[in-house]
């Protein structure tokens, strides 16, 4: 885990010990096409106005994770298997979200 750079860290890795989940608003989940997790999907975090905020690439198990803030967010996934969206309202702590993609 690096906080020197701005690149997205490995998705699906355990939360770094330095992350205080009482303070952070973590949005994490899995991208699926049907029942199958989608590896290598691009998950975009959009704010409540639809503005792009961040993007990560899913792990082999289809996992993604963001460190956001309490409020409403949209997750938009792009992949070879198709695209999909999910809008969620989140609070501090770990928030689990499922995103489905379809062609």
């Amino acid at each position: 885990m690096s906080i020197d750079g701005c690149g997205a860290p490995e998705q699906g890795a355990p939360l770094p010990a330095s992350v205080d989940v009482a303070k952070e608003t973590v949005i994490s989940g899995v991208v699926r096409a049907g029942d199958a997790p989608v590896e290598g999907a691009y998950v975009r975090l959009l704010d409540s106005t639809g503005e792009f905020t961040a993007e990560v690439v899913t792990s082999p198990a289809g996992e993604f994770r963001f460190f956001a803030a309490p409020g409403t967010w949209t997750l938009r996934a792009l992949s070879r298997a198709g695209n999909g969206d999910a809008t969620v309202s989140v609070d501090r702590g770990i928030n689990q979200v499922a995103v489905s993609v379809a062609a």
């Binding site: 885990m1 906080i3 701005c6 997205a8 860290p9 770094p16 330095s18 992350v19 205080d20 303070k23 952070e24 975090l45 704010d47 905020t53 961040a54 993007e55 990560v56 994770r65 963001f66 460190f67 956001a68 803030a69």
Partner: peptide, 16 residues
């Protein structure tokens, strides 16, 4: 949010 000072880093990174 980084511009306004509400976040310290992009939202895929821890904020401390």
């Amino acid at each position: 949010d980084e511009y306004a000072g509400r976040l310290n880093a992009p939202a895929h990174l821890p904020q401390e």
